[in-house]
Design a protein around this nucleic acid. Sequence first.
DNA 1: AATCGTCTGCTTTTT
DNA 2: GCAGACGATT
Length: 662
Amino acid sequence: MFRLFDLNDAQEKAVRTLAGPLLILAGAGTGKTRVITARVAFLIAQGFDPGCILALTFTNKAATEMRERLARMVEASDAKRVTMSTFHALCLRILRQNIDKLGYKNNFSIYDESEQVGLIKKIIARTAARDEKLDAQVAKALISKAKNLGRDCDPNEESLAGAVFARYQRELKNLNAVDFDDLLLLAVKLLKEHPEIQARWKARFSHIMVDEFQDTNRLQLDLVGLLAGVERNVCVVGDDDQSIYGWRGAETSNILDFERHFPNPAIVKLEQNYRSTNVILGAANKLIQNNPRRHPKNLWSQSGEGEKIRAIQMPDDREETRFVTEEIQRKQAAEGLPWEEFAILYRMNTQSRLLEENLRRLHIPYRLIGGKSFFDRREVKDLLAYATCLLNPDDDVSLLRIIHTPARGIGETTTERALEFSVRKKCSLFQALNSPEFQKELSARTAGRVAGFMTLLDNYETRAAAPLAGFAGIMTALMEEIGYWEDLKRSCATPEEALNRETNMKQMIESLSRYEQRSTGGLQGFLDGVSLDRSEEKEDTAGVTLITLHAAKGLEFRHVFLIGLEEGLLPHDRSKAEGALDEERRLLYVGITRAMRTLTLTYCRSRVKFGSAVPCHPSSFLKELAGEFVEQISFEKLMNTPVPKESVKSRFAQLRATVAKL
DNA sequence: AATCGTCTGCTTTTT
DNA sequence: GCAGACGATT
């Protein structure tokens, strides 16, 4: 058999199995993306219409990567016709076409997390009795969970949470808005309730592939079922051992019981790993075997045994971070490696703080993944809210955001009254403010200001609705007219902050302008893109990677440091309380399998938590790992070891490098 | 309407 | 220990 795209036997079998359901169990680092793209290329080579192939991913990054790889394997015109998209993006496409069938308008807004919480807060305030308490964040989590299970709200529900859910859903519809979960929920609902629409989408795809199948939830499984044709050409790729998003609604049962959903599947296991040493894989295998329900797998590689994993106990978190950062400095100098080959992995974002301090002290460049998003910045959100209002003025949440920014003499009292009017008349806030009947209730002064604001929005709406409207220009003009920039500058404490915020705004307008040049999706398309893809393109920054275990999935690094292996942190107390110990074990498994050559595990005897030092105990997972693959090193021994030779050599290497730069 | 101070409560976060 | 939320204050 000739070698297809230079694949191993198992990979080739996965690629060549085209008909019927196929389950590819792809262990960490076994060439999963490679197999999916090769399979798409093979389908095209076999004469299947590229336009009938659908590949679904979770992240835009994965979709983009796949598309780029495919472009190198097949004709550009064919590659373009394959649908490669995230679940949410596909659902959005379905909904933009036909959501009117569910009673929404096609220009609906998409609410992010903070907008959801804002809305829920308001609803709780209006719904809860004086003695009832419900945290908006908790309510949001409950609603999200219910939606991910495919449950619509029950209007007869008696509990406060249930009432809030029902009201939230009703309110969203009035606002002509949907949240992230709705994208899936409503798309599935639409396909289920309207067979003609389902038939249309179903006919469109002959072959469906799903990446990271272990992370799918009920709705996503339903969606795949609704889109699959009678042949059930559904190929899913995933690794149950890397399922770490259960708390997000992912159902491991989707991959564990795949044959229940798609009977008689072909099953291919990819176990040859191209990333790590056998020591690392051995430890990973050993750890994960403690999980009860899983598809048995055993990773192996041809990259030799490799160095033993080091497990080091530290006195406290200060010493831990100091050691790790200095160790990276030593190793980098000794081996002359780029900083990008190193990564520090941790359970919680707060752990990055001490690391950052140390890295800065040592002048080591680093990139911190995660944290606050660009899109959560106040100025960015304001700009987007203005844009959203131009398209969907009935979106009260966005309107409320911009009505006081900058202050234009329309105060709390006025909006309170308008809100009350809108509830009474069952109309949107925008309609209330526009209504002469409402304006009559106001003082002449306030009425004038409201009218002025309405005229402003109306003017820009008209301009935005014009064919060939230049949105970047329109938004700039709008921001200038309302004096947004001066207002923002006034609220900044330091000149640096002002400059920073200005840059963010410019960046936003700039990217809108670029979008207009390459796409025909208009302002709506731009906003959709922003809603669904919040990744910042800052991958160019070089340095040591600081990243949570969750965010590290799918990445690889030559040298990995995994810190804070303590009971209560990893596994996290709260996960243990929720009975999610297996998932914590998988999380560590994901961390271990990121390492290509060396892995260092650290844990502390004491750690500062909530401001004060508390004693810690080694993670129970360390016991599960203990044995031939792991070498225990005590901090004391480490400190008494004389400086190794390379480190002396490294000083020279460093010096030489510095001189060379001059 | 904005600012200051106090209170609270603390994982992970693909879209 | 610190950020974020909320309420009292001018």
